[in-house]
Design a binder for these strands. Structure first.
Lengths: 127, 127
DNA sequence: CTCAAACTTCTACGTTTCGTAGAAGTTCAA
DNA sequence: TTGAACTTCTACGAAACGTAGAAGTTTGAG
């Protein structure tokens, strides 16, 4: 239950980017704008139905990625964890299924940029 | 195009475990045995149709995970890359889609066992 | 208090992916 | 040449996802 669909991901990206909890309507508008920007000129921002966004949010909630405030009238939605946390968790999930974890880490480290290698050294630095 | 179904994964596990390229028939037999072992007593190894295995192998080939020798009469199949390589690649894929790579790495490192941290230090050539 | 606008929930359909395999076509050895 | 073994083609059911209308609920304006 790890992977997301295209629209699900787009919604998560907005929730991760925004600081505040958002409503379905807000998200729908933002989706229209971002898809317009990405699609280039002539490609009008496609307005999704609000129910579409709500369905996606419900599914994300069921997956444990999104939390909703039910108190407020337009419910407000927010990501349960930050994008960085979520991504790191995913990486652990991928790694976790391997019986040869150390070998995987070796391959992984082998193809990391020097800058990132430096970051890793610092993070691992003190024993 | 990263995630695999249950049967697809089982086949890849066999291909990764085996040293030699395998035929569809061999794989079918191995699948029956491993599923029996995993299912416990009473759970007979379910014999899949060979065509089922072939379909899965074709799909894995299309995904670039499996290579087949077409010269030999029973075609022989093998994994394109090792499990470790593939897993490491997956980790990079997951990481790659993040705009905040360093933050992700920080979270990732934060939840790695001490033994693995040590491995990573060695791999990074600690200063 | 009433009612319409706004909001949420329910239900549904088309597409893609995957497990599963029969039917049909191809190849090789006897 | 022909039948057994093998491959390819076609297909169907289930689950996930994009998409949204229909129906039910809440609330603010009057």
């Amino acid at each position: 239950m790890a992977s997301l669909g295209e629209l699900e991901r787009a919604v998560m990206d907005l929730l991760w980017a925004g600081q505040e909890a958002a409503t379905a309507n807000t998200l729908r508008d933002q989706l229209a704008r971002t898809s317009a920007a990405q699609g280039g000129p002539g490609h009008e921002g496609k307005e999704l139905a609000v129910t579409t966004v709500l369905t996606v949010l419900s599914r994300l909630e069921k997956k444990g990625l999104v939390e909703r405030e039910r108190g407020t009238r337009p419910h407000r939605y927010q990501a349960v964890s930050s994008r960085a946390d979520h991504t790191a968790e995913l990486m652990h999930e991928v790694l976790g299924s391997a019986p040869d974890r150390e070998a995987v880490l070796a391959r992984f480290i082998g193809s990391v940029s020097e800058g990132e290698a430096e970051t890793l050294r610092k993070l691992l630095g003190h024993v």
